[in-house]
Amino acid sequence: MKTIEEIKAAIEAAVPGAGVEVVPNASPSGQHSLRLEPSHAFEVAKFLRDDAELALDFLSNATGVDWPDKEVTEKVKVKRLVTKTVDGVEQSAEETVEESRKRVEPGCLEVVYHLFSMAKKHGPVVLRMKTVNRTDNVELPSLTPVWRSAELQEREIFDLFGIVFTGHPDLRRLLMWDAFKDHPMRRDYVDPDDYEYEPTAHEQVLARAAAHTAGEQIAGASAGAIPGGGQEGIGGK
């Protein structure tokens, strides 16, 4: 099989304008990946499947990954007016000062595809695509029209991560029920409050029980009746 750079060259020759870059993999597995631009990903996928030499006709695995926002602290050199007392006289002069600034690097959601070839018996070729951000722009092109095996896997990624695949024939939740509102595999998902019975009556346990009962009574339940309404996260578990 060709090396990753040769595959990249072949893709760029066949689909001009496709932004492909190599993402190296530091582990001993040596499985480097290719990052695709979402705009041309569909044509690249078709080329990879139909090419006579590569013949990547088997999509083995489609994975979603969540990269949350990162807070980055960096030191920046800034020119500032600094007042200094020199020999009892106050003077202000411009000086370069080092300041530490906090910046939020926006996160994104990523989808990773592993391709193999059943005809040529080689692989894997790893493709990656990133969304723009994690909140409102989470669309990526679906590769289901190229490889049917992506159908259920992309539905699962939509269910658990929230990436919307445009062009998917039947995008709905796979594992959770339809009325469910969150995307559970994201790193910032909070589990619903679930009170656990504990026999040891020490303070933290009693406090948890109090919080739980208080929550139930707020929902309008009376003793002996079955409480209605859901239990929202009350101070976490």
């Binding site: 509102k181 859901g230 239990q231």
Partner: peptide, 14 residues
């Protein structure tokens, strides 16, 4: 009943 985040009610007090 399957609610938005959890089952409703989350347990049967009886």
């Amino acid at each position: 009943v399957q609610g938005e985040h959890d089952l409703e009610p989350s347990s049967n007090r009886l």
